[in-house]
Nucleic acid binder design. Sequence first.
DNA 1: CCATATCGTGCAAAAACGTGCAGAGTCAAG
DNA 2: CTTGACTCTGCACGTTTTTGCACGATATGG
Lengths: 251, 251
Amino acid sequence: MLASQRKEYLLGVLRETGQIVAKSVSQELGLSEDTIRRDLRELASEGRLQRVHGGALPASPAVGDFAARQQLAPDGKVAIGRAAAKLVRPGQVVILDGGTTTLQLAKHLPLDLKATVVTHSPTIAVALVEHPCVEVVLIGGRLFKHSVVAVGAAAIEAIARIRADVYFMGVTGIHPQAGLSTGDLEEAHIKRALMASASETYVLVSAEKLNAASPYVIAALTEIDGMIVAPGVAAKSLAAYERKGFSVTRA
Amino acid sequence: MLASQRKEYLLGVLRETGQIVAKSVSQELGLSEDTIRRDLRELASEGRLQRVHGGALPASPAVGDFAARQQLAPDGKVAIGRAAAKLVRPGQVVILDGGTTTLQLAKHLPLDLKATVVTHSPTIAVALVEHPCVEVVLIGGRLFKHSVVAVGAAAIEAIARIRADVYFMGVTGIHPQAGLSTGDLEEAHIKRALMASASETYVLVSAEKLNAASPYVIAALTEIDGMIVAPGVAAKSLAAYERKGFSVTRA
DNA sequence: CCATATCGTGCAAAAACGTGCAGAGTCAAG
DNA sequence: CTTGACTCTGCACGTTTTTGCACGATATGG
């Protein structure tokens, strides 16, 4: 690979992801970090990017602003969202929970994917307005401000009328014995109703949720069909889950 | 995640939630509290936030916030929103339509006002999350992306179960003979249902909507209780409306 | 006043950095 | 074809930055 090609590649990464991590790029290209660092130094001196410890960021905030804002979520959640989005098949009816992780899922749905997204989160509904092919169904109800989702009897009733193919659930705790749990009773009810309305349920688990438990139990682990966990969690932390009879996916 | 991105993330949290709790952020990012505290200390020394016990608060309360929230909306809509917000009495149940003008209304509700806001606009629901005292009820349904509001049979049904004190309607046209009109048939139905569920209906009219008509009629002028018009419209343009038996308020 | 949470500091390990240098490859002059 | 100048790349080394932990000090809330 030519040096100039490499620099173009670096700028491409910057455009698409809003950031460059020297280490990971060097691994992708099979080159030493030194070479990447040299390139970054030169591109920085040309003013084409901004050098920072560990990699680089866009030179003019405005350019990479959009991409960067997408990535401003913690690494793990972005990865989980991207991995989960790949599980959605064209034509499916998908239920999306509220929360930052599912928001990443919504943002990573392929732009040419035709599907229907059912959600009780106004935030996710607004995010999907930009998506050209996805039909959005909003579940109404009393707004629970802490999580920014609709809850209550009206929500339960609306959910009962829906038959979805798959439900992506967010939780605040998942534990081999305690199962799935969350911090609010109303939300636990809603999540249970959403599970009942979907053929399959997948749980999105960022690192800090693993082996944690919250006050209100949603369901046992045996009731779910799969979990998608953040990359970089220790394999032995997952051992207790891999025997439970559902798929465990590393993002 | 790069260190500089982490600081951006912290400032983002501050913008969106108005505060930073060191402990919870460290859990979200999977880093130690020490690292977060160091970042906060540095950002504080740069004057970009105010360090407090347990986390951080905005450096200049509501300064950037206020500027940001106002810059996008034209003056006229801001004025209409502010004027309409003054019509809301404590304890009332208020229906807010979708649209940029009603969004301004929501943002100008006094922070100490206790009231219930019913809306079929996820955008408005999200905006009101910041309001400390307002209860929000979200009307669900199929999302009409052009206007970012819920429509359809499910929405109509949910609306039928509500009795509100006042409804603030947005329109795309108001005309002495043609009455109130909008550009989408589904939306016209929803607005009619919302009118039926409210004791009083006020219409928010920015300058370009005055004396205009759109394809789908919502109601005749005789059915509304008042209109709030943008400041600076000629008095003679309003003459035709002041004889119709409802109040005409200049913002 | 006490229990708890949070804070700041010092320290050590790890990661990232810059620099100098050597080997491999390229190119042009001899 | 050979030689020397030049460039590019990877490695080694010492330096700097970052990060997590331990400790004692300080603030908070009952």
